[in-house]
Every structure is written in C-alpha cells, then in structure tokens.
Nucleic acid binder design. Structure first.
Lengths: 355, 355
DNA sequence: TTGAAAGCGCTAACAG
DNA sequence: CTGTTAGCGCTTTCAA
C-alpha cells in the first residue's frame, strides 16, 4: 500500500541513506543521483510517512492552539493570522477548543505528550501554575496570546490603557453616569479592563461604584459572548435607577455589545440617544453594528504568535518576551460622537518590552 | 528527557511488552502486574510518544478539516460540532483554512501523506476529480460537508428546496419583483440555491431574469462574505430600475445579508419597508440582525460528519452515504412578515444609527 | 501470563 | 559522494 524509501532505493539502485538525502535536499549528493531518485519518487508517487519522519527527526511540525470558545469571533480573527503564517512555515495547526477549565488542562496534558507538538499557543485564559514547570522541564515552547505569564513569551494588548481610552472618550463627551458591562474576572483581559475603567473615572473625579459593573453569570463560560452581554444589559436597564443615573456604558467586548444592543432594542432603548456605548476588540462585525470600539490588531497578533513560537524553537534559552499592542479608538455611531473629524486618538503603535 | 516504556519496564521489573499491554488495557495481564506498572507510570509521569504510537499502530487519531475561509461564521459553527465530537472520540483536529483553490489541493496532498491523518473532512468546495482515485487507492476516508460527490460520504442541506422555500415565502407575501444576491457559481450551494430561486419563480409564473441575479466578484473569494454582500447590494440598488422594479431579495447567505443591510442603511433604504430580505444559514448573528433566513443545523452537521468519518474507518468498504437536511424557514423581521414572527422581539424598528 | 524480538518508515552518524 | 547501520518509542507477534 505505501511506497517507502526502500522501494525507491531498490528502484533507483542506491541505498536508503542516499534516498533520504535526495528527498531532504541534503548537500552531499551528486546531481545525477538526485535527479534519478527524485524521478523515481515521482514515478512511484512516493509520500513520506509523516509519523516515521517525526519519530526519527524528533520534530512534529505541528503546534496546538488552545482556545476558549473559539466561536468567539475575536479568536477566529486571530486564528486566521496564525493559520496564514503556519502555511508559510509548513506547520500543521491543531485546534483545541476549550469549553471549561478542566478541558484546558486536558489539552495541555495532551500537548505535553512526548513529541506530539512542537509548541503550544495558549489563548486568553490564565495559564495554570501547576503546568508551568511541566512545560519548562520538557522544554516545550509556549506562547501566550491575550494573556500573560512571566515565564513564557506573551502577546497582548494594553487592556488597562485601552479601557482608559474608551472610558475617557465617554467622559469627554460629557457623560458622568457611566456603567460597565464586564466578563468574568477570572480572565486577565476582564480584570485589566475593569482597572482601566476605574482609573479613567478617577481621573475625572467620578466616584466608582461596584454596583455599576454588570457581569452576567451564565454558567461556566467566561462571559465574553453575546448572551452574557444581552443579560447584563437587561439587568442594567432594570436596575433601580437604571437610565435615570446611567447615560453611557463601557462594554468589555464587541460580542457582548452586540448582545447588549439586542437587549436595548427589545426594551425600546435607543443607542446612542438614550445610552452611549463603547466596546472593545473591533471584530469584523463591529462595523456592521456601527460600534465605537477599541481596535486590537488581531491578524497581526496571530502571525506574531507563530513567529514567536518559531523563534523559540530556534533558541529555547532566550529570555521570555512580551509584546504589547496599544489598542486604537475607532469612533463609529454607538458613542454618539458623530463628528467624523477625529478618527482616532492613538495610533496602534507596537511596543516591545524585553524583561 | 522522555520517559519511555523501557524505563517503566526496568523500574517495574517486567518486559516492555507487558508494559505496553498494561498501558493499553489489554486483557491478558495479571491484575497485580498491571497495578504495579500503572503506578510506576504515574510515578515517573510517563507520557506516551504520540508519533511512535502512530508509527507502530498505523493510526494517527487525527483528522484534517479543509475549509474555505473559515472566518465565515457558518464554518465556525459547524466546526464547533466537529470539535465537540472529536473530543469525545479522542481525535485531534487539524485546521486547514483554504484561501484559494491551489491551497485546497496542497492540503489534500498533505493529508494524503502516509499515515498523516485518519480521515479528511472537506467543506463546501467542489472536490477535485483528479484526487478522487488517489484517496480511493490509499483508502483514506473522506467526508464531504456542504458539498457532494457520489464516491464519498456526504452531508448537506437541501439547498434547492431551501431556496425554493425562501423565495416562495417572499412570493406569498405578495412580492413579484424579486432579485437574488448570490455567491460564486463555482460552489455547489450557490448553484443549487440559484436553481431553487428560479424554480420558485416559475411556480408563480414570475419570469426569471438573469439581470436580477447579483454576484459580487471580489477577487478569488467565493463570495460568501460580508463584503461581497455589501457590493452586490450597492450594485442592485444602483442598477437601472433599482427599487422601482425590485421589492424583495433572496440572499444566498446570512453573512452576505449582513453586508447587504449595511449597504441599504448607507443608501437610506429601509428593510423591510422598502425592500424585504430572506437569506440562508441562520448563523448565531442572524438573530441579532433579525434576519428571516433558512436554518441549517450546523452543529448537528458537524457532529454527524465526524460520526461518518469514524464509521468509515470501521467499515471502509461500505457504500457511500448521503445525508440531507431540510432547512427550516425562520421568520424574523427582514422579510416584513411581522405578525408571523416566531420570536418575542418587539416589532420596534431597528437600532437607530442613521445620522 | 509474560519476555524477547521483529518491525513500523525514517533520519543521521559512521565508514568507506 | 554513497552504502550500511543503529536507533527513534511503540505495538504485536511468537514462544516460553
């Protein structure tokens, strides 16, 4: 069934070592034998056995991506970047979608399996401490995307600063009754964005009130989804005080904002007339919903993640790196600042931080 | 660096064969040695080497998914189904996102590589004829999703019938000037949906006019995306006649419809008052945009696809199967049939984003 | 029930 | 430049 290098060797009248050299473009082969072997290989439609190669060479050319709810479009857009670079570099991408914390550990364990993958990309979740040393011992590269740990290469967005920009924008438009719709504080981005929200309020001497932070607790999910946004918005609008005291909301992600818009529409609340909204991410659909939002360079984050992983396989001992992107305020309709003269307050500069 | 079965064998004082048997739950081992070996394995934190297993057992427990533009949410939702089942069955999922036809063949070739994967899931695209025999010869299982070939197991939706239902709905609402926004006819779904559109018109004795079928030709993509929908809608609205003669549109997918809504809003055209819309897919966001659309059971299609692949590895000689789902009309706001709405959303107008 | 040994298909070191 | 040989870590006979 399978053509092996032994077949090629016999057919071409050479040894298997030579065949291997020809196939792998090793230097020390005469042009003549190379042509010969290659033509025989084509003739017999030879296909190398992936796992034999991997066993012998100790390289899998595969990386795993561990992603919470990859149905969240934020991840899809990052994945597209990863995928594009993976194609160039000849990597296979294993997709591990996580639906609860236990699953994340399962996939981590699976990735740890001897030689299974050459590296792991871990998204948005807090990396479990008890796995840190395991990865260090094995020497399996890890890149963290949208989250952080000092032991590993990390890529993320300046969430706190972004949240400040977003909230500040609302404040500058004159709003003072500002609420926040957030996701689970178990995730780093949610925590940082809350901090930024708070810091911006303080800047403007607006007292922070925990009662104005709404987080939908829909089961085990992290809250970065449309439903959670929908429910948070309902809660917000029904809260005592409600629209009396609140005129603007900072929402932790676009998908949540989309859900929030649905809730608002249902309850006859107009955006931005009755309530202004700024969110975070700038997924493709943000434009459709005319969301004013903080843009993250998702595609670039994806390609960079793979580059970092690749670099680390080359130099495992290097210091962990951290790349932080500054999100950019994209003004559309939901914030109520229609004058299109100002399109952005900050440029998405990229900041390299070596530790 | 890696703990092997030799280490376990030495430590437990048995042979490697016995170790292997214990690890794989083979019957013929004494309970005593099994416990012993297993405890040693735990102690040494043994992790089997994936590729050695795969080389020896000739099974990879991996399948590849070849998907056009997987950023299209339709695929994301199917993938979620595939992923859920893959977890249960212990399969790894390789993600191959295709951006042009040549890439599809590349990934097909890659999947064909000896033992690389146990099966291939091929989405929505026409399966290249010259690869049919290659897969048959190798005996590598293929499942087609959202496309069809008699040689392979296929899963799809009754596109023609679905398109007829959609168009008929518009006709029954009294519309006669009905246009269609379609995607590239290189894809089976687009072809079938056009056929259904046409057939429904004929039923009602409405003459079909090719000029009323709009397909945006944005480069190499298949047209099932938001931008294509946007441009098609612009073309439609600017076409001679335009709104004079057209009062309703059947759009080949939700993502295109979302783009079309953007174009309509931009040009001050109200949906459904000025023009009614019915689309296809019922992705999660269809509800957000209140699209009347044809629902496809995407998650179920995903799990079924993996089941079929699994079944085929068990019985490679079985006749190829075809499973067809009948799409279901979901009535929301864009078609203008508000009274019949199946959802509890208020019939108030869309979010007010116009300036 | 168990140990020993023969591969799985390939890479890479080592002689020639 | 090329053939031979020894693994890579595991599964699976085949005897014992």
């Amino acid at each position: 069934m399978g053509v092996t290098i032994y077949d090629l060797a016999r057919e071409a009248g050479v040894g298997i070592g030579t065949v291997s050299r020809c196939l792998n473009n090793h230097p020390n082969v005469s042009a003549q034998t190379r042509t010969k072997v290659l033509s025989v290989a084509k003739l017999l439609n030879y296909q190398p056995h992936a796992h034999a190669q991997r066993l012998a060479s100790k390289k899998s050319n595969t990386i795993s991506t561990i992603i919470p709810f990859f149905t969240n479009y934020f991840f899809v857009e990052i994945l597209q970047g990863v995928q594009d670079r993976a194609l160039e570099l000849g990597y296979d991408l294993i997709l591990y979608g996580v639906n609860n914390p236990a699953q994340a550990e399962y996939y981590l364990r699976r990735s740890l399996q001897g030689g299974h993958v050459d590296g792991v990309m871990y998204f948005s979740m807090k990396f479990p401490e008890n796995y840190i040393t395991k990865f260090e011992e094995i020497g399996l590269p890890v890149v963290l995307v949208d989250t952080f740990h000092e032991k590993f290469d990390s890529i993320r967005v300046k969430n706190k600063e972004g949240a400040m920009l977003a909230t500040r924008h609302l404040l500058q438009l004159g709003h003072r009754g500002i609420a926040m719709i957030n996701a689970s504080l178990d995730t780093l981005p949610a925590k940082d964005r809350l901090e930024g929200f708070r810091a911006a309020l303080e800047e403007f001497d607006v007292p922070f009130s925990a009662e104005r932070v709404f987080t939908a607790t829909n089961g085990k999910q992290d809250g970065f989804n449309r439903e959670a946004g929908y429910h948070s918005m309902k809660n917000l609008l029904q809260a005592s005080g409600g629209l009396q005291s609140i005129s603007a909301i900072f929402i932790a992600s676009d998908v949540q904002a989309i859900g929030a818009l649905d809730a608002a529409r249902e309850m006859g609340v107009r955006v931005p007339d009755d309530i202004a909204i700024v969110s975070f991410d700038d997924i493709e659909l943000a434009e459709h919903s005319q969301l004013t939002t903080m843009r993250q360079p998702m595609h670039e984050m994806g390609t960079l993640a793979l580059d970092k992983l690749f670099a680390r396989t080359k130099d495992p001992k290097a210091q962990p790196t951290l790349t932080e992107f500054m999100p950019e305020l994209i003004i559309r309709q939901t914030c109520g600042a229609n004058d299109a003269s100002t399109h952005s307050f900050s440029s998405s500069t990229r900041i390299e931080l070596e530790e």
